[in-house]
Write a protein that binds this DNA or RNA. Sequence first.
DNA 1: GAAGCCTGTGCAACCGGGTTGCAAAAGTGC
DNA 2: GCACTTTTGCAACCCGGTTGCACAGGCTTC
Lengths: 136, 136
Amino acid sequence: MQETLDHRLEERNIKPTAVRLLVLKAFMAQEAAIGLADLENRFDHADKTTLYRTLKTFEEHKLIHSIDDGTGALKYALCQETCDCAPEDLHVHFLCTVCNKTFCLNDTPIPQINLPTDFSLDSVNMVVKGLCSDCR
Amino acid sequence: MQETLDHRLEERNIKPTAVRLLVLKAFMAQEAAIGLADLENRFDHADKTTLYRTLKTFEEHKLIHSIDDGTGALKYALCQETCDCAPEDLHVHFLCTVCNKTFCLNDTPIPQINLPTDFSLDSVNMVVKGLCSDCR
DNA sequence: GAAGCCTGTGCAACCGGGTTGCAAAAGTGC
DNA sequence: GCACTTTTGCAACCCGGTTGCACAGGCTTC
Ligand SMILES: [Mn+2]
Ligand SMILES: [Mn+2]
Ligand SMILES: [Zn+2]
Ligand SMILES: [Zn+2]
């Protein structure tokens, strides 16, 4: 297990520190996306800034990606092992209106849309709200 | 013109005050969505809170709708006259990465997507980033 | 027209999420 | 051990949004 964690970090060229291993473990332990506040609560000994910077480091190295689901607080989720955070890795995110959990729908690619002429497309953020499987 | 403004407010059961007429005028004068900070700058005599509450009032009465384009500040745009802010009135929003303007793509309905089984859909927020017709 | 009421406005202060500066602590290479 | 880099912790700040409260202005009732 510890092996897996270490390896996952090394793969992305992140030095394994105590905090980082702890945070990664949190990500591996649950499917739903995680926000800074979540981490603060879970590890009440660790400092907010450290956790914040850990998330930033993970994001820079594409171990996790950020999700803006419109709730006001950013959440983060593990990237898939093959993920390069390129346009083709973009996917839909789902926010449950009951439990407030956010999920990556990795198998739901973002559908094409027809922009008005003279608009050129760069990237798309698509967040679906509804009830998750636990809450319906 | 003044007539139009008054009428537009009455249609939505909003009493026409000086500030409200001014704000509505701002919305009618430009296509791009408007944020609270924009209004603060435009009317440097009017108070932030008043403008804030004006936006809230407009939104409650469905004269405008809010747009979270991920820039960190909410923007607002006029609803179409027939709009009831119902699911079928939802549409794609477009954020230009150069001029930072946000537009309603009223003619671009949000495409259907296939959720995993056991997830039920409620609403969708879709923001497209790219270059607008002025900036490309 | 005075008294009372409701709505709208202005100011100040607050809140939460995110971010930065800076110094101490921990790790690394020699 | 010593110099250097990286990571961590604390405090303070920033910005968008929001609330409490007092006052202004308009309308109502007598
Ligand atoms: Mn995701
Ligand atoms: Mn719109
Ligand atoms: Zn749920
Ligand atoms: Zn533009």
